[in-house]
């Protein structure tokens, strides 16, 4: 059976994991338009290639991020979710320094 390297539990059978969607930014619900919101809800990149995704190790209730190729189905890396916030912060400074 296919296995995933869980950052907390090590190598486990894929049956123990639940797919949680692509990692992406949610628009600010207090200020975004209906159009932006429906776009966020429904319009998908549906990338054929490398993506970053949320996965849940169901028995331990642990969410993490995996880098997966949606064509070859190879999972090339897994990360602790705290990295998500590091990335977000990095992108934020990036965006600010572009101003």
């Amino acid at each position: 059976m296919k296995q995933i390297l869980c950052p907390m539990n090590g190598l486990r059978d894929i049956d123990e994991f639940v797919y949680g969607g692509v990692v992406r930014d949610m628009p600010d619900t207090a200020h975004c338009s209906d159009e932006d919101w429906s776009e966020y809800l429904f319009l998908m990149d549906n990338t054929a290639g490398l993506v970053r995704e949320w996965w849940l190790h169901s028995p331990s209730g642990y969410w993490f991020i995996a880098e997966r190729d949606t064509v070859s189905d190879v999972i090339s890396a897994t990360f602790d979710p705290s990295l998500f916030f590091t990335w977000a912060a990095a992108e934020h400074t990036q965006a600010n320094s572009d101003d």
Partner: peptide, 18 residues
């Protein structure tokens, strides 16, 4: 199953996951 890929060529996204 390749609907999003084609729409991507045309420059827009679809409410579709493969």
């Amino acid at each position: 199953g390749h609907s999003s890929v084609l729409a991507g060529y045309a420059g827009f996204k679809l409410p579709i996951t493969t």
